[in-house]
Structure formats: structure tokens, C-alpha cells
Design a protein around this nucleic acid. Sequence first.
DNA 1: CGTCGGGTTGATAACTTTCAAATTTCGTGG
DNA 2: CCACGAAATTTGAAAGTTATCAACCCGACG
Lengths: 243, 243
Amino acid sequence: MNVTQTPFGLKLGAFMNLTVEESAELSQLHSRRKKFAHGTDMIYQGQPKQAAYVLASGWACSYRLLSGGERQIISFNIPGDFLGMRSMMAHNTDHNIEPVTRAEASEVLAADLSQTFKNSPRFTAAMLWAISRDEAILMEHLVGIGRRDAKERTAHLLLELHARLKLVKMTSSSSFACPLTQYLLGDALGLSAVHVNRVLRELREDGLVTFQHGEVEFQDLKGLIALADFDSDYLDQNGVLLN
Amino acid sequence: MNVTQTPFGLKLGAFMNLTVEESAELSQLHSRRKKFAHGTDMIYQGQPKQAAYVLASGWACSYRLLSGGERQIISFNIPGDFLGMRSMMAHNTDHNIEPVTRAEASEVLAADLSQTFKNSPRFTAAMLWAISRDEAILMEHLVGIGRRDAKERTAHLLLELHARLKLVKMTSSSSFACPLTQYLLGDALGLSAVHVNRVLRELREDGLVTFQHGEVEFQDLKGLIALADFDSDYLDQNGVLLN
DNA sequence: CGTCGGGTTGATAACTTTCAAATTTCGTGG
DNA sequence: CCACGAAATTTGAAAGTTATCAACCCGACG
């Protein structure tokens, strides 16, 4: 399969047009496929080797556990996302990444990556773009938890996921398949699962979105965007487009 | 003055021993001094040129405003911090940075920076370390707002600031000068200023910390660390020490 | 002096969690 | 293909945390 049609290729492709050589370089990076089942951490504290992955299929999430047992999900990862970049650069891993569904990911070795950086400055730029996009997502997440109420926050997350999935062609126009449980949503949004349930019901009763049977369907996209104060600029979908 | 004694030099020095050449390279980057008064944004949406700064003196903060007028402070910046790295890499600025006190900062041009990256791989590594440290701080901030209550969160922030300031020699063993208002703390912690006030009072009454007249004094450091579940690992103070 | 930003406190309202229990869905082995 | 148990969803009631509103105090500064 053409790399440019993989989620990773699609995502980088939004930022720049890949040349044939770059596509080749990319496939290189994108081999060494591994499978992960639910319950096996992909990245965890104190793991033996520094590894990073490109998620090829399935969803994952990175999180931190507090001493009291509470957990905060830092981010959800979808196909095309780069996992564990940070733990590769800093030499400590202070968070875990686990699959949300069965997942496949390509392992990326530090050495290969730095080689690719040398070979292709444009690819490097694209990676920097991806990294700062991740940081922007993290920032937006912080803003949501800090200053939006439960309903706005939840709506915002659903809209963000929709936009991100669109980039890798995993949505239809007004819905997407979503494997997250209400517990996972709660741990990401800083809410209890019970309250997530209530909020989803309210959103449904308001005729804005439904999330049932693993499917998120937008009934009133404009209304939801207004409620969540959602501005997709931070996702930078159009990219700056080198070339 | 020797660059290695500036906050920036001290900070990078925690990560690696700077050679004479690297120090020179660093001074280069660290010229072009600018002053900022309270109320003038250093970095803001739609600004004309891509700029980044190394904060030399004073405090700053980066924040985002919501449409409703609420604001969320993303991070506080202290001397030695690199500001606006992200807005330099991605070509959009989705947040503002403003000084908290009078501040001086050295402007860094994109061209100079990439030149320095080429000249010194070790310096580049140190910068990557600094960037991922910032991201770790952001993550910890997210965890705090999502899963810690007001008291724990506040305590955690004070401890973090203490640890970060220690690295640039701006603390005494159990206290530090803190120019933040309760409004700023609230906007960072996702709390109202009124509640910050109450929380600070409780912490004081518990005999843990006092924050009065611009001075934070730890009365019972161990107790506070226990309360906040503070683990300074994420600040990676010791660095990995190249050489 | 008078004003203004910041800090402090009390009372009330709003939002979210916790606890408990019932119901539904889903994966797996028989 | 069905039955079973585990996991996830749903709802109500009560408790807890934090926000909001309002008032007052204080010190810096023109």
C-alpha cells in the first residue's frame, strides 16, 4: 500500500506534499509493525528501551496516575499519531500509553529517526509541525479543563476528535466511530464517569450530538460549535504547506 | 558577565557542561536585549514577525482568552525560560505572552537559532531537553487541574515554582519572592481569585506555607509535598548530563 | 486626599462528585 | 447460537467543592 495513503502519510500530507524519495524514507520508518492488545501498555515508566511508535490502526491514550489512584488522561491518540516522542527526547518516561482498542503501531528507533531527520529537512519540518500541533492540542485541553464547564468541555472534545479523524479519513461528514467509554472520557475531561453520562444525555436532549453504541453523530454541528466555543485553528488542518 | 551565570546559562548548565565555544555561541543568541513593561504583550496573536525570547529578568505568563472573556494561564515563565518556541515552529500564534513584572528578554531570531543548532549538536540536545521539560510541566499542570482539588493544586504550583527558581538561583532554601497576584494564580489554577484567597489562608492555617507580601515561605515542606503529592522528577533537575 | 488594584471575608448559588442500585451491552466459553 | 459474567451505561438522592455577589480593608501612588 502506498504510504501516502496510510494515516501517518495522510497526516503529514496535510502539511506538505511528499516527494517519491520522502515517501520511501517514510515507509522505512513505518515498517517494524507491532500489535497491542487491550491491557498491555505500549509505553510505561521504567521500560527497558526508549521506543516511539507511529500508530497505524486503533486508538490509544496517554495518561498519568496519581498516588491516590486517580488518573488523568493527557491525550487520545488516533491512527497517524506519533507516540512517545517526548520520552525519546527526555530520557525519562513520566507517563504511560495504553491502547484503547486493539492497536497496531510501527516502532521507530531513535537512530532511524535522527537519520531521517538528516536525510530530509522537509520531513523534519513536518515532524516539528506535528509536535507543535500536539502541544497546541494539549494546551487547548488545559484551557478546556481549566475554564470550560462540563458540557462545553465534552462538546469540545467530540468536535476535536471529529476534526482530527477527518484528517486521516476516518469520519463521515457528520459522524464518527468512537471506541471511548464514559470512564475514559471522564478521565480525560477531569469529570466523573457518572457526570459524563449526564452531560451526554443533556447534549442529546438539546438536539446537539448523540454518542451511543460507539458512534458519535452530530445533529446540530453549528449549535455544538457555538456551545463549545470551538475554533479549529489550533489543529492547523491546512498546514502551512511547504511547496 | 559570564553567560554561564545568566539564568539561561544556569538552566542549560544543569543539563550539560558548556564548553567555552558553546558559551560563546550562547552569548551570541543572548544579545539583542529588550525591555517590556507591564501591559505590553511580548507575543500575541497576529503579531507581525515570528519572534522568540529568552527571559533574562522578571516573570511572564502565557495565556489564552476564551470568547466569554475568561482566561486560562498556560504557564508562568521565569528567568532562563525560552518563550515562544512553539509559535516560531508552527507559524501560528494561538496564545499571548505578557510580562507579570517588568521584564527583560533577549530576542532570538529563527535564523540564528537554526545556525546555532547546526553549529552545536550538544546545544541542540539541551534545547530539546528544555522543550520537553516545558511539555512535562504543561502535562503536570493538566493533571493538577483535572484531578487535584484546589488545595493540592495550589500547593503543587508553589512547590513547582520553588524548584524551578532554585535552578536559576532565585530562591533561598525555604522561600522565594513571588510577584504573582491571586488573580494570576486563579487564572493558572482554574480557580476564582476569591477561592485562591481562601485556599492560601487554609494552607497558612495548616502551618504549611505562607504567601504574603510577595514572599512564599515554606513552613512545613514535607507536609506540603505530601499534601500536593509532589514529585519533582518531571522537572528533571539533574538532567542527563552530557559530559 | 482620593482612587485604584489587590486582598479578605461572609452568604448564597451553581456545579460536580459520591454512593447506591437497576439496566443494558458485550465478549467468551460451552 | 446461547448463556453467563464482567463491563459499561443509566438514574436518583445526598453531600461536597467552588463560584458568584457583595462589602470592606489596606497600601501605593498621583
